[in-house]
Design a binder for these strands. Sequence first.
DNA 1: AGCGTTGCTTACAACGTTGTAGAAACCAGG
DNA 2: CCTGGTTTCTACAACGTTGTAAGCAACGCT
Lengths: 332, 332
Amino acid sequence: MRHRLKDVAERAGVSVKTVSNVVNGYQHVRADTRARVEEAIAELHYRPNLSARNLRKGRTGVIALAVPELDIPYFAELARHVVTAAAEHGWTVLIDQTGGGSEQERKAASGIGDHMIDGLILSPLALTADDLAALDGLPMVLLGERVDHGPADHVMVDNVAAAREITAHLVGLGRRRIAAIGSQRTPEGASARLRLAGYAAALAEAGIAYDDRLVAPAPAWHRADGAAAMRHLLTSGVRPDAVFCFNDTLALGALRALHEAGLRVPEDVAVAGFDDIEDGRFSIPTLSTVAPDKERIARLAVELLAGRLGPDREAPPRELVAPHRLALRESA
Amino acid sequence: MRHRLKDVAERAGVSVKTVSNVVNGYQHVRADTRARVEEAIAELHYRPNLSARNLRKGRTGVIALAVPELDIPYFAELARHVVTAAAEHGWTVLIDQTGGGSEQERKAASGIGDHMIDGLILSPLALTADDLAALDGLPMVLLGERVDHGPADHVMVDNVAAAREITAHLVGLGRRRIAAIGSQRTPEGASARLRLAGYAAALAEAGIAYDDRLVAPAPAWHRADGAAAMRHLLTSGVRPDAVFCFNDTLALGALRALHEAGLRVPEDVAVAGFDDIEDGRFSIPTLSTVAPDKERIARLAVELLAGRLGPDREAPPRELVAPHRLALRESA
DNA sequence: AGCGTTGCTTACAACGTTGTAGAAACCAGG
DNA sequence: CCTGGTTTCTACAACGTTGTAAGCAACGCT
């Protein structure tokens, strides 16, 4: 049913290696031989066995992308860009869901592939420097916050600056009681810490006192968490006139909670998010947010990985910052 | 750097095959031998080379999931469930984006794997029966509409019934000028045709005349298309008092357009969708929709595939229908 | 003691491919 | 028609793994 080089070779009356040469476009093959082989290939519907090729070559042509959750729109959108960018390098992308657990992430990084993949683009939540050091073997590019002094390449946005800018925008609207939603105490919360720092910096610059009661934690960054946090803020007696949510899904949840409380956005409370996901362009009201250049992030990550697999094999870890901008819409 | 069975064998003072037996949990290995081998494995950080194993076994442990677009929430949510279900069978999932083009889909089905994958779960938009017949080799499960008389297993929801139910619900609310958004004339629009049929059936049952002007086409099923279609309906002079959108993203776009037009949902216009994506639970207003059991769909698909790869290798094509229910919320 | 049985281990070949090295065919120039 | 240099093709080995079959102890039974 499934044919091998050998079958094609017999049919074309040449050696196995000659067929291999035709398949791989090797140049020294006479035109008529090539034609005969190609005919045989077509007739038998021959397709190379990638496992065998990989075994022989030590390369698989597959890279993995490991993200915490696929149905968080930010990661889905990012995944699309990574797939596109990787395709330009002739790679297939194996998309992996880590669930954000350090165990899962370690497994993704060390386990997935074991010779099944050439490299890994990992968006870590829980991974520590120790975990990374233990991996070593696999060429890897990390997305998001720096795992301090990890040995891997890195693509990130300037979270602190971005958070500062969007908070400053809220200040510029005349808001003074600006809440933040999404803080996290856990070690996984690297992004949360940086965005909180940016938020605090903007307040400080504006001479607004940092008020602990205005900072709402969120165990995860889903819509439900945003809604819950917002409800908590509203019932706790601190009446914010603006909220900076650490990502867009939190913000969409917050919008929902404000709506249920009968408050108008942005008149009563301005809302800002982070990520610029598709939903935010159609929500009611549309969402003002930080727009990281996801396409660029994906492209940079793929390119770093390409470097690691090629000429820059032994280069020192590099760290690239992708640009971001503010996408100001109705909510703030 | 990377070690092989042979290295472990030498270190443990046993044969290569014995190490292989330990790795694969073969039973006839003396406890002390096993211990020695395991120690050697640990010391060398040995990990099997999957390419070699696959070559030998003819199985890769990877299945592919090919969907049109990853950042359509429905597919992202589905992907998550598939990954979860596949993990229970010990499979890794290679997620592929076809973009909905028939060329791409054919490539996904025939090309991706070529011995890289054991099977394929494909959500086809454009694939014809001919395309499928040409593939043959790869065990495959299709999601969504039947490609007529294709030879592959199939998991679907009863689109006609579901569409009829949700439309009947709109009728039950007392609406009479019920629009539909999302019709498609192209061959890709199999889902669109079925949902339109369900819509028409519900109208007929209620004795409401089918009005062509109330049926708005949508080239794709994105939020922007839904918004555009809704705007078109509103400006064309046919004032609907309800809209059934053929998926949730269309519906979210429609909500947005209605909001911009100053119309209230559901008071002025009731809105219903299809898919039950996460967004719809937090939109303003929350979205009434058809909720296909995505978790079940994923599980059935994986199980069918498992069957094809195992005992039911030669079974005739099966067709399973996953249940759905109405998720009635604020918008209708 | 001889026999079969059971438990443990091993050598060998094979999976389908490609790199290496070299053989065969071809070509031009004398 | 030989020489030397290409071009074109081929045999062989290897990538790392596992299935097969067979070897070797040690055991219990007659």
